[in-house]
Design a protein around this nucleic acid. Sequence first.
RNA 1: GGUCCGGUAGCUCAGCGGUUAGAGCAGGGGACUCAUAAUCCCUUGGUCGCAGGUUCGAAUCCUGCCCGGACUACCA
Length: 706
Amino acid sequence: MFRRLLVTSALPYANGPIHIGHLVEYIQTDVWVRFQKLRGNDCRYMCADDTHGTAIMIRARQEGRREEDLIADMQAAHERDFADFDVEFDNYGSTHSDENRQLCGEFWAAIRQAGLVKEQAVEQLYDPQAGTFLADRFVRGGCPKCGAKDQPGDNCSACGHHYTPIDLVDPVSTLSGAKPEVRSAAHLFIELEQLHGFLAEWTQSGDHLQPEIANYLQGHFLGEPLRDWDVSRPAPYFGFEIPDSPGNYWYVWFDAPIGYIASTQQWCRRTGAALADWWKSADCEVHHFIGKDITYFHTLFWPGMLKTAGFSLPTKVHIHGFLTVGGEKMSKTKGTFIRARTYLDRLDPSYLRYFYATKLTSRVDDLDLSIDEFVAKVNADLVNKLVNLASRTAKFVEKTGLSARYPDDGGLFAAAAAAGDEIAAAYEACDYNKAMRLVMALADRANAYVEENKPWELRKDSSQAARLQDVCTAALNLFRQLAVYLAPVLPKLARQTGALLNDPITRWEQSQAPLAGTPVARFTHMLKRVEEKDLYAMIEDSKQEAAAANAAASTPAAAVAQASPGGASSVQPVAAAQAAPEDRWNDGGDALAAEPLAPECTIDDFAKVDLRVARVVAAEEVPEARKLLKLKLSLGGGVYKQVFAGIKAHYEPQQLVGRLVVCVANLAPRTMKFGVSEGMVVAAGGGNEAFLLTPDAGAQPGHRLH
RNA sequence: GGUCCGGUAGCUCAGCGGUUAGAGCAGGGGACUCAUAAUCCCUUGGUCGCAGGUUCGAAUCCUGCCCGGACUACCA
């Protein structure tokens, strides 16, 4: 009984190249799809580039070309990267397609018809110079609550307060530097709350979601009314104009998931299939693979849209975690933000496919790539034990081929065949880690078999020729069996094995019956050992790319250099060539890039902030606070200030007592949960870092910084 | 602060109520030489985070605590 399956991965955004973090998902999905196809199921893998939105519009503008040209180049680069990683789609489309526009219209009409759309005015900041409304991330300004300067548009990094960009004090557009103005525009909203009952039922029943995700939705969203979803954006916007609402465009997250269906539509037109058989049929399962960051869209909005428009609901949304490298978030400075192309320039894609497979389970956990583990797993498992099976026996039967009948192997082949069901179940459940463990246990037994039967001794005695052929027949069949089991993960190895034994691997059942009496081709190397130095070289490449990209970004004229995504990786970037000759330190530009310079200010602006040298005279932990230390600062002369500083993670209270720091002495007092904070200790660093500043010797508490 | 997940050999993990707790890798010893310094055999190594409880019996179930991670933040 074969199944029909429609499978998707999230659509990569056309604003940047594919990196190894993306590949967790595409490899996970590709393995699953290849597994289903190998099992004989009618399975199709659909994907597309996600092309709409403000970010694309802005970038195209910066690069001085049409959005269509930008997204075409990016899509070509994406498709090359996927193909080179053996990620094989049945169709790879674009959200900027006629099919998608038409389907968006169909969804929209149904949602209108169902009475889910309402119109409401939204006040938003507008950049008169750039001529566009500003999304949160394109505005910075002062926090309306604590007064911290140069904060992002949605929440304050100093006090954590949430607000809308309109609340910002002295907002500035990061696009043009202009002062934005508040403008009102009518937006269209979908009243998701009307679907509350359906969504509560759907998310909590059946096996549509991993248990932790169902639980998360229940706790985070379904316990209260669902908020209206703003699905329109006023012009100018790169996207599709809403037919019954001229001047308004569908928000990118409205048309992106519909792109799954649009891509299927393209495939149907090409192959003569009927879309309804795949998206409106109870006989077809729909499986989405996504990262945990877009859970919300795929588990609430998307099912709501599908339900309303009469399309199939997802059979399952498979959600995975993020990639970390060496236990840390990917970092451009550290060279661990590795592009697919940068990897391909140094390493074999099979390594990464296998490594990810050994790390992936059905849970949402993040997954870590450590260099040592990568090298150990690939070399020990793939080369030492797996490929070694073929490489140590194939040449003994190159002239004779396999024995006419499969010999007695002590039940090894039968036992490994019997393990097939358990391996298949592990693949089906996305527990690739388990599947890999099961396969490698079989490889161990096969090597022991070769060891016990010593083909290298048999070949010395011509009377043992038949025995030699039998032993190698068994060993190569055991190898082939594993190649079948691993074919979803290692398609290249499957192809090589098919060529070696003159029998292409196309079906899972090939693992259940041995080959006999067939010719054996000349053995050629199947997989090189990974060398640690290549990984380090790759990381070095990534650092250089990041440095070059930073340098390019800081000179407007160089923006064009980034415009050729395909060519970017093949050109060896000259790292920070622009560094001044006397600058032998050549510091990286990551910090500056992460937090660009604030708009110009006057000396008077600066004078408003009274920075003083202060001595920490007391420091204690605030047990209930996760980040805060309570400090008592002396400005000398008996003047003290109580300050709560968010540096608990970085400093021990005792080590602070007695030292000098710099504080903002005239900051308005603020009542916090644990008491009043009368100032602020300044520290360098972004994100999770904090480095206190110490004045040179001679500075006294109370000295002002000028 | 809350929610969820995890804490088992040096490392990555399996086991999730029942014989003396396992695998791979790493370490030690030996064998072999067909093979990409591969393979095979033997071996060192763990009061299964801590403390209680349930049970004839707990790594496995319950409670509390500690630690790590993810998510989220006047809050389910």
